[in-house]
Nucleic acid binder design. Structure first.
Lengths: 219, 219
DNA sequence: TTATATAGTTAGATTAATCTAACAAAATAA
DNA sequence: TTATTTTGTTAGATTAATCTAACTATATAA
């Protein structure tokens, strides 16, 4: 059984060594310490312990990576985190930005029955409120083709999960069009010439550029 | 902010010093250590710390009791415990006996928003699956008149929450009548002479003695 | 290719929660 | 009222997770 702290280190390592997230497959001590808000000395001690437990591969002055076992454990924590986020958002009316902090605590609750029942209760969701894939009980993560609005065919309706560009000017534009997290967007038409599209959000129609549509991730 | 351990000590003290539960208003070190599965030396150390924090009244070789502040904190933990038990039982299909262990972990999650939203989601329940009152956000505990089946008027329907007598022979009888936790019981008639009553459980009628009815707590 | 900067490690200390073993006080019983 | 039992306390150790300060290795840049 892993301690909360050990679980947090594994989770951080998973993100740091995941090509999709960080673009690298190995992490360093300082980098790890930075993401966990501890001093490098502290992280170093934990690395020794995790190596001892065969959860990471690591040699003195070398790079760090997760062993298959370590990766499995990390994914289980991530699974729990994302299921709890979904619960908080969908059932308890938490907002998008409030879910993370509480899920950081809930992810450490030990009970496989709990997490299976929770998943069932939520009707086996594929992604959390941020649009990140929820691994299944076996730890398999569906490669979620995070589509942009540009890729949605005419006539189809989709749901906004997150934005690529987080700049204030872009976000203000997003709000102006009537969009928010989880907004349903219907693609009414698209010009072949420049990709300009007409969309409908809660009955309100707007015309948006391809550049705009490229910056919206939808599910 | 209290640690998980401190919260557990306060909760144990609340139960040990609650007249209704233990019949006493003060607790001893050994007794406390026993309920928490630690050695008396360990409990003694914690008592010093809790006294320092003004959560208990306690003098060397004396009896222990909660201060008003300590009691408030204990009640908040109990509130969380019971709301989580209710959630597990009602929403996640946990059985009566499975809820406690997981709730022991969930009760330590820190987020007042979480617990308020959870309470709302559960529709402000008055009691947990064991029939114990859930304190409100202010820490007030409604004195739940834990009625026995004997006290239910003819024609009314009630819900079984727990039993007074836990003997195998009694429980077998309970099952035979078609009763389980949360069973709805309708009181069809009652004899003034000896209190014998006719009840209906899921369409099935049975005749039971007053002694039997005295042993069933209902809500 | 040597000097400097960055990254990583070690040693020694601290805090929280626990333990064992030895001791002290209080309660009970002869 | 003394002896015994029960209850409670202290001292000293241990483990997990953290720190600071000092040190070492590796990488980079002049």
């Amino acid at each position: 059984m892993l301690s909360h702290t050990e679980e947090n280190y594994l989770k951080a390592l998973f993100h740091l060594t995941s090509e999709e997230v960080s673009g690298k497959s190995e992490a360093g001590t300082n980098e790890l310490a930075l993401t966990l808000n501890v001093k490098p000395a502290t992280a170093n001690d934990m690395l020794k312990k995790l190596k001892e437990k065969k959860l990471i591969s690591y040699e003195k002055y070398g790079k760090i990576s997760l062993t298959p076992t370590g990766k499995k454990q990390a994914i289980q924590v991530i699974r729990k985190h994302r299921l709890w986020e979904t619960f908080l958002y969908e059932k308890l009316e938490f907002t998008w930005d409030e879910v993370h902090e509480v899920a950081e605590q809930l992810e450490h609750i030990q009970s496989s029955k709990l997490i299976e029942k929770l998943e069932k209760f939520l009707n086996y969701p594929e992604a959390d409120p941020h649009g990140d894939v929820i691994p299944n009980a076996k730890g398999e993560m569906k490669i979620l083709t995070r589509k942009t609005l540009t890729q949605v065919p005419v006539g189809k309706t989709c749901k906004l999960v997150t934005v690529k560009d987080g700049s204030a000017s872009f976000l203000q534009y997003v709000v102006k069009v009537g969009l928010g997290l989880s907004s349903k967007i219907k693609v009414v038409s698209r010009q072949d010439f420049d990709g300009t599209m007409e969309i409908e959000v809660e009955g309100k129609k707007s015309s948006v550029s391809q550049k705009f549509a490229d910056n919206l991730y939808v599910l």
